[in-house]
């Protein structure tokens, strides 16, 4: 019996190790490529069919920080986007969730159903329309960053499900008691519910924070060729797809690492809250 268990465990370990290797292999490749110099005197910046560079060099990283490209601007843009979207979106979601969870008003179910239906329309459909709408306010091209923040935040109220689910689990008796003591709704919301909702606030903020790092489609549409308004995803995708950027592949990898590392570290630190959020969201739908 014992040996059987031991064999079982050994197999499990082997499977887990294989899985880990498969999972980490692309990242390993990415890191290795980022150390391959693009300088033809040293090595070559295009695609190659080996993983380990022949000479390790920091040329790609140097390039990104050298000011030859606007990488730092794109990076700064993305951080601004992420911070603002994260903060404002969290506020919006909390407001909507509280109203829908705690208050009963005319049109509440209609609103929820209506938003659910809206969510079934594909987002890209409205891209061209949003572009011209933002253009009317001067929020495209050089104003693309505030424009993107506005659009991302404006519609974020529809993503209330997880947060409302969490609020629903906070006993209503607490509210009732406070109201008997004469506290207003706003007071209850600000001083009771919000402090109790730290996990869900962190979850909401974290998810909102991560999204702008991958936003390629809409961001490129709104920036409309204005280089200084690109986020990292828009700017760097060009290095892989467009023929204007030959031999930029290793630089793409280096940039990718610089983006992935801080985001990953942040994610790992707050992983606990993320798990709580997705699990809660999954179960309640």
């Amino acid at each position: 019996m014992k040996t059987k268990k031991k064999i079982g465990n050994a197999i499990t370990y082997i499977v887990l190790i294989i899985i880990s290797i498969i999972w980490l292999f692309p990242f390993f490749g990415l890191i290795m490529q980022s150390f391959r110099s693009y300088d033809p005197a040293v090595e070559y910046g295009g695609m190659v069919d080996y993983i380990i560079p022949k000479h390790f060099s920091l040329d790609n990283y140097r390039f990104l920080f050298s000011g030859e490209t606007n990488f730092l601007v794109w990076y700064k843009n993305t951080i601004i986007l992420a911070v603002f979207i994260s903060a404002l979106q969290t506020v919006m979601v909390l407001c909507v969730s509280y109203a829908l969870s705690r208050m009963r008003f005319k049109g509440r179910t209609f609103l929820m159903r209506f938003w659910l239906i809206l969510g079934m329309f594909p987002g890209f459909l409205t891209m061209i329309c949003l572009y011209f709408l933002l253009k009317e306010f001067g929020l495209t091209q050089s104003g693309a960053i505030p424009g993107l923040i506005l659009v991302s935040v404006a519609s974020s109220g529809m993503g209330y499900y997880v947060c409302k689910g969490f609020f629903d689990t906070i006993p209503k008796a607490l509210d009732e008691a406070a109201r008997i003591d004469g506290a207003s709704r706003a007071r209850i919301f600000l001083t009771m519910i919000i402090p109790m909702s730290k996990p869900i606030i962190i979850y909401t903020a974290l998810v909102a924070f991560m999204a702008p790092w991958c936003d390629y489609v809409f961001a490129s549409y709104i920036a409309f060729g204005h280089d200084m308004s690109y986020n990292v995803a828009v700017a760097m995708t060009r290095w892989v797809w467009t023929n204007d950027y030959q031999g930029y592949f290793t630089r793409f990898c280096a940039g990718g690492i610089l983006i992935a590392v801080p985001v990953t570290i942040l994610f790992m630190c707050l992983q606990r809250y993320y798990v709580e959020g997705v699990t809660g969201g999954a179960v309640k739908g």
Partner: peptide, 16 residues
């Protein structure tokens, strides 16, 4: 180890 794929922005990992 597994969760890294969620954390790394998809445009980096998927393009690679």
């Amino acid at each position: 180890i597994l969760v890294v794929t969620i954390a790394v922005p998809q445009f980096v990992s998927l393009l690679y």
